[in-house]
Design a protein around this nucleic acid. Structure first.
Lengths: 158, 158
DNA sequence: TATTGTTATACTCTATAACTATA
DNA sequence: TATAGTTATAGAGTATAACAATA
């Protein structure tokens, strides 16, 4: 008897589908710029940071050796630069080039447009309701994990 | 002045973040079973089909040569089997083994639990609102692309 | 000839282990 | 000795092009 009702109250499938829809939107969009998801995340992370290779590994949840290759390829395309640290000559910092920053901006605004189109198919009141609940959900999740919500913003939405 | 308001009405960032949250949940969960996302999708697609290699390529949006390798590795792990077609001896169909089916079920139910935990942090009324709006969004999107919603269910929620 | 699937090849992405340079 | 980063190596995942078997 409570079958239909509980499906509505715990919309696991719907949420999963929605997440794959949005993720796929980004994947297809960045592919047009010959970017993989991880290269896109790299650019996103660098928009407001100049991390060391070590820090980059933590930010992207990768091994430091994986970051070496990742940055190699991005640098080869002229999207990022390695900046030797003066304080500690073992350390290398990574920053966006102008080209890299422009590409990151392009991708971000195009992706926002893609998501806006999908959202635009909903009536205004539904969009408002969605915004409210999604923001509550994100806050509740960040709370539950003791995480600063804004610290992860640009990693997830490059 | 309408800045805050329009952010709420077009929750692009929030939706993107949410989608990465859910996607990451699945990624971490399947990694515990030594599954990549594409291997997980393969198992998901096979839960109610025995497609040819060609059909598999279309279902997963991969080149047929990529599917050869994908199926090779899954078959090597005993998760799927190649079944020679009797009608056309060029054709190979792919199906789940018992082990593959059990793994797919495990992963699906664990992932549902993960999503349910996140949703459980919302008050009941918010969950109901989210369920309603998300389902409308998915229907609207499927409509807009002239796609049968249920045909893609198990690809996105393995 | 056309189609199905595999193979050969090349590149990205990833990790582990060993290495170099610096601290 | 310990740390930061790279290199060597191996394997998954992907695509393009060439191929074999079948239709």
């Amino acid at each position: 008897m409570p079958r239909t009702k509980s499906r509505q109250l715990i919309p696991v499938d719907g949420l999963a589908q929605l997440s794959f829809l949005i993720h796929g939107l980004l994947e297809r969009r960045v592919a047009e710029h010959d970017l993989s998801m991880i290269q896109t995340r790299l650019l996103g992370v660098l928009r407001d940071r100049r991390p060391t290779m070590q820090e980059l590994a933590q930010l992207l949840s990768l091994d430091k050796s994986s970051v070496t290759g990742l940055v190699d390829r991005a640098e080869g395309r002229g999207l990022v630069v390695r900046i030797p640290s003066e304080a500690d000559r073992r350390v290398v910092r990574v920053g966006l080039t102008g080209v890299g920053r422009a590409l990151a901006s392009d991708v971000a605004s195009q992706f926002e447009g893609d998501v806006a189109i999908v959202l635009g198919r909903l009536p205004r009141t539904d969009r408002a309701a969605l915004a409210k609940v999604v923001s509550r959900l994100l806050v509740a999740d960040a709370d539950a994990r003791g995480v600063d919500l804004f610290a992860t913003l640009d990693e997830t939405a490059p």
